[in-house]
Structure formats: structure tokens, C-alpha cells
Design a binder for these strands. Structure first.
Lengths: 227, 227
DNA sequence: TGGCTGTATTTTGAATTCATAATACCTCTC
DNA sequence: GAGAGGTATTATGAATTCAAAATACAGCCA
């Protein structure tokens, strides 16, 4: 028995373009040729163009009337602004999680937390990042607010390609872990206000922004952008 | 000399459909016929369908594969979740506004605040609402965070058609004004943390949700929704 | 009469075609 | 040889066409 419900073509195309952007196969500022992508995906221009419209409304690309599309170049300010926003959303997710999460849910987060600590003590950065991310995702899921999750996911998508720059000073790392210690305690106490506060201020965001100074070239994107 | 740069057709169509939804000309749950809208707008299906894709990604309509589109029916939970989110965003806007707003900006908000107070004392609800909204917009603008503004605007668009239900008990109203008194003081003191906290908890949100019990029919939308 | 099956119609999904704006290139002039 | 102007080419915007799925409807049978 095969799958009955077929996803629309434009959704698949949108996913594939998103992946290309995320992986850097389509560089920031790069002009997107419709024909080229059509041939690459083996679809006609109609679904491709529909996909581009969606991606534009998601903020991943920008459409220039009569001149096609190009991948959005992230400015440092855009990334900073987006992180501020994501911080606020994480804060909310913490508050809501404390209201809605089950006791088992808390225990599951605690398990992840302890695992993360082990990776920290072993100075295993990749695994630390991975588990760290799962903790934040877990809290987000526990918020039981789908609009929040969807919004967060969209914002995250926008900055994914510059995230996880892997630079982490000992000092920052120590403070991040300390934040997490306070977080798990607040969660276990179901102190939403406190967890929210911690998450909003969680220096991951600020840290990442700081470390981006080298990754994103501030306003240098304007050299291509004067449309 | 006429306008040179012409907006894309699909953008105009999207705006017009948004307006139809907001005004209630397209009812929640109502099936959207492509042909009908094409004739109404005098465009072909291509730009209309592109517009529908965008509106779907904005959360205003939903696309059912091979069965067209329909206006999203808001559940009470969706509205509640959205308001929670908007509260968090307003909180952030307050924090940022305190960092970025100019002294003139603060004075401008103070003027609006005093005007709002007058409307309150005269029990002029429509003008109160109007000025109230301008205050919140002013703070949002002062945040100088475009991603935030854009995100807020999208969420607001989703719930616009059920907002401003005009029901306001004296008690709620008094508390709302009281919140605003604290807000303007926090702003003038540039106390971002406090202003953020007030805005997050500002009972407008909770109030509106409460008053919605009659406007949005809780889960009754499911009668159409089992796709 | 009520329900089911098969056909006709309508509607959506996607490709193609046509029109127009932008770009590239070539020539002509200075 | 450099730059301006004009034509050819290419790419995009939008309409149309074709294909496939869903819906409506009619006839059939119990």
C-alpha cells in the first residue's frame, strides 16, 4: 500500500531550496536563477516560483521585481535582532513549560541536562551543542504553544546558516552551563517566571552574536544590495 | 511622470485577500474558490495562487491538497497562544525601546498617554482604543528591531478579525489604565526590565482573551476541520 | 426508497506559452 | 580606444493550456 496523500510540489521545492540555502549551496547575496533551479529539480517554473514566494515571505530570500530573487544577506543587526526575538520567545516557552510540562517531562529534561553536563566536563563541544539544543527544543515543545513553536522555528531557520560557529571561550561556556543549572532548578520548581527570566537572558544568544563578528560581515553586504 | 516601479500582481492580490478576510467578507472556514476570486480581481489564476501560497505561510488560510483553500478558523486556543506570544514580543519591545528611544520619543509617548487618560476619564472607548494602540505601536517602533516589528505585525494580522471586541468592564479598564501609568513611568525612567515585565503581563491580552469566549466558538470549528 | 457504482463536470496542480522588462552585445561615432 | 545608442538575447511576469483529482449527478440495484 503506497502513500496516498501527496504533498504539493511547491512544498517540496521550498524544502529543497531551504536546504540549499542552509547548507550554503546558495550563497548569501547570490542571484537565484529560475531556469537553473527548474532544471536542477526537474520541475517547471510554476511550482518553483510559488516556492520562491513562500521563501520570500519567510525572510530567506528577497524578490526583486523583474529581476528575480536572491538569498538574503544577513547583516549583523538582523542576526542580533533575530536573536533578541528568539530570546524573548525562549523566555515565554520557559514560562509556559512550567505550567504545562508533566513530571515525566521534567525528568526527561533533567536526564538531558545531566548528559549535557558530562559532555561539558569532557569538553566535548559537538555533543554538548547537540544535547543543549535538545533541551531547548524540549522546553519549547513543553510550552504546548504551537504558534510559538512555529514562529521560533521560522526565526531559527533564518539564522541557521550562521549559527553554531563553534567558537566558545572557557569563560562563556562555564557561564552557559551555570545558566543551565539555574534553568533546570527553576523548571523542577516549576518557577515559570524565573525560568523565563533566565532563558531571556541566557547568554547563548549574546554569546553567539558576539562570536559572529567574524562570520557575518557587518554592513559589507551593501556592496551588492544597492538595488 | 507616472509610477515606474510596479508592484507585483501577487502582492496586490494578497493584500486584497487579506483585507477581505479581515473585514469578514471571507468568513472563517469558508472555502475559497480560485475562479471566483480571479473574476473578482480580474487576474488569472497564476498570481492568485501565488498569493494564496503566501497567505498560507502567514497562517491566514490553509491549503488542502487538491481541494483548494479556506480561511483558517481560529480556535480559542490559537488566539490565546497568539496573544501569549504577542505579549512576549511587546515585553521585548519595551526593553529595547528603553535602550533606543530618544527623549523626544518619550515625550511623544507621554503626550499620547495623557490623551489616552482623557479619553478614559470621558469614557470614550473608541478613542481610548485608538490612542492605546498608537502607544503600543510607538513603543514597538522605538524598539528599532525590524524583525520584531514584522513578526508582531504578522501575528496581529492573524487575530485582527477577532480583536477589539469592545467589551470592557470598568474593573478591567481601570486596571489597564493603571498598567499604562506604570508603563509610562518605567519608560521615562528608561527601566527596560520593568517596562518589559509590565508589557508582558499587561492584562489587555488576558482581558481580550477572556472577552473572546463569546466571539470565537472554542472548538466548534472542528465540525468543518476534520479533513 | 435508500444506497452504491460509474460517468460527467468542475476544480485544482503543473506545464507551457505569450508578453514585457532587463541584460548583453554590437556598432557607430567622436 | 572609449562611450553612447540601438538591437538581440535572455529572464521574468502573467495568462493559457493540459492533466489529474475531487465533486456532482444520474442510473442501477437491492
Amino acid at each position: 500500500m503506497s502513500k496516498i496523500q501527496q504533498r504539493s510540489l511547491y512544498l517540496d521545492v521550498a524544502d529543497r531550496v531551504r536546504a540549499l540555502i542552509e547548507q550554503g549551496d546558495l550563497a548569501p547575496g547570490e542571484r537565484i536563477s529560475e531556469k537553473q533551479l527548474c532544471e536542477r529539480f526537474g520541475v517547471s517554473r510554476t511550482p518553483l516560483r510559488e516556492a520562491l514566494k513562500v521563501l520570500a515571505s519567510e525572510g530567506l530570500i528577497e524578490l526583486l521585481p523583474n529581476r528575480g530573487a536572491r538569498v538574503v544577506r544577513l547583516t549583523l543587526k538582523m542576526v542580533k535582532d533575530t536573536y533578541d526575538l528568539m530570546g524573548a520567545l525562549e523566555g515565554l516557552s520557559g514560562e509556559l513549560a512550567c505550567q504545562n510540562i508533566s513530571d515525566e517531562g521534567i525528568r526527561a529534561i533533567r536526564v538531558l541536562h545531566d548528559e549535557m553536563l558530562r559532555h561539558y566536563h569532557e569538553r566535548n563541544l559537538p555533543d554538548y551543542f547537540r544535547v543543549n539544543q535538545r533541551i531547548h527544543e524540549g522546553i519549547l515543545a513543553a510550552s504546548a504553544n504551537e504558534v510559538l513553536q512555529e514562529t521560533y522555528s521560522n526565526l531559527n531557520q533564518r539564522v541557521k546558516r550562521v549559527r553554531y560557529s563553534k567558537k566558545m571561550t572557557d569563560d562563556f561556556w562555564r557561564k552557559a552551563v551555570q545558566d543551565h543549572e539555574h534553568m533546570i532548578l527553576a523548571l523542577e520548581a516549576r518557577d515559570g517566571r524565573r525560568l523565563g527570566q533566565i532563558l531571556r537572558d541566557h547568554l547563548c544568544n549574546k554569546l553567539e552574536v558576539a562570536s559572529l563578528a567574524g562570520v557575518v560581515e557587518d554592513e559589507s553586504l551593501l556592496d551588492v544590495a544597492h538595488s
